[in-house]
Design a protein around this nucleic acid. Structure first.
Lengths: 186, 186
DNA sequence: TTGCAATACCTAAGACTCTTAGGTATGTTC
DNA sequence: GAACATACCTAAGAGTCTTAGGTATTGCAA
């Protein structure tokens, strides 16, 4: 029988695709192994088990999200930067629901995961600086922005917005509200 | 052997306490049965299984949260109402993390769960009316408020705010930002 | 009080998880 | 070509939820 030729990176990538396609709940070692053409115990040669796999997935997801928002922030300032970054954030989460769910799950005790999440936050701090916000003001600003965006995304994703009013308009108005709020805070 | 004397309400209440104490992840029929002094198959006489239990828990949680925020809204308007309602929202979630997680999990397909969640939303609409917001404006306002609050709560709960800057101040400033935003929207 | 009906609870068993232990065979390196 | 590293395997155990079917308790009715 030929080998599948797996390594940790390949396993994590397949897990990411499976989670995005089927939902994080359906990411099981059994399903992942079947997708990769091996038996589930074989995966333990590459990852430390399901918790370790989800941790790696979360780190990978943070890196992907950071790349997306950092790219959007390039060459922009203030409201322009905020809009571009938040749109990119939301679009990335929409395109990668399983990965995004691993971020939202949280690994507040794991240094590497904290560092990966910090990568996203640093882009937001750059946006705050372009507003002229520094020190604690910028921390409050980042927290408000993250809360609003993360809340909107998760509420939308789980079907929390039921009233038939255009969601895109709600999103735009929320981003505008954040923009005005940040201007007034400085 | 004497009977435990369970019924559906008692089972759901015990499940809520278990979820709040140990986390929603640790709410298993096995653990719940042990807590109640019965074997896990016995629970099927009272609830339809684990998914049904979580659904009932979510509905129960929405009702509890709605009571808390409705109470806070009584006799208040505008910023006064907003602050009281959002503080009560956050406090309820902090006191009942397991129950709150069941809400956040989402049951967008189940009519009864949607109706229960709507109860909370209606309190927010009352607050919007006190700001003078009607129609689509009020929908956008409710969505922005829910997003910010839900995002803040979940980010805090999972340890997403790592920078050593006072969280309470961040919360207050976010609520103030929402207040200013709603004033300017009308 | 006695008998019957409802049902609360049980054990047994199956299908599904993750995970560990230990064996086999493939690929690589000397 | 031989030895070694390791990718993958099977087997097995401890969990999970869930269904099927049996027992015994409870409450109601005669």
């Amino acid at each position: 029988m030929p080998r599948a030729g797996l390594d940790a990176e390949l396993v994590v990538r397949a897990a990411a695709e499976l989670a995005d396609a089927e939902g994080l709940d359906h990411l099981t070692l059994a399903a992942l192994a079947q997708r990769l053409g091996v038996r589930s115990p074989s995966l333990y040669a590459h990852v430390g088990g399901l918790p370790d796999l989800r941790l790696r997935l979360a780190i990978d997801a943070c890196d992907g999200l950071r790349d997306a928002v950092a790219d959007a922030a390039l060459g922009r300032t203030e409201g322009d930067a905020l809009r571009a970054v938040l749109d990119a954030y939301r679009e990335w989460a929409r395109a990668h629901p399983g990965r995004y769910a691993t971020i939202a799950h949280g690994f507040a005790d794991h240094p590497e995961a904290i560092a990966a999440a910090q990568g996203v936050v640093e882009v937001l701090f750059a946006v705050m600086r372009s507003y002229g916000l520094e020190g604690e003001d910028s921390v409050h600003g980042v927290r408000a922005v993250r809360s609003a965006v993360h809340g909107f995304i998760t509420l939308q994703e789980r079907g929390g917005f039921q009233i038939p009013v255009d969601l895109e308009q709600s999103w735009e108005r929320m981003v505008e509200m954040l923009d005005r709020g940040l201007r007034q805070d400085r």
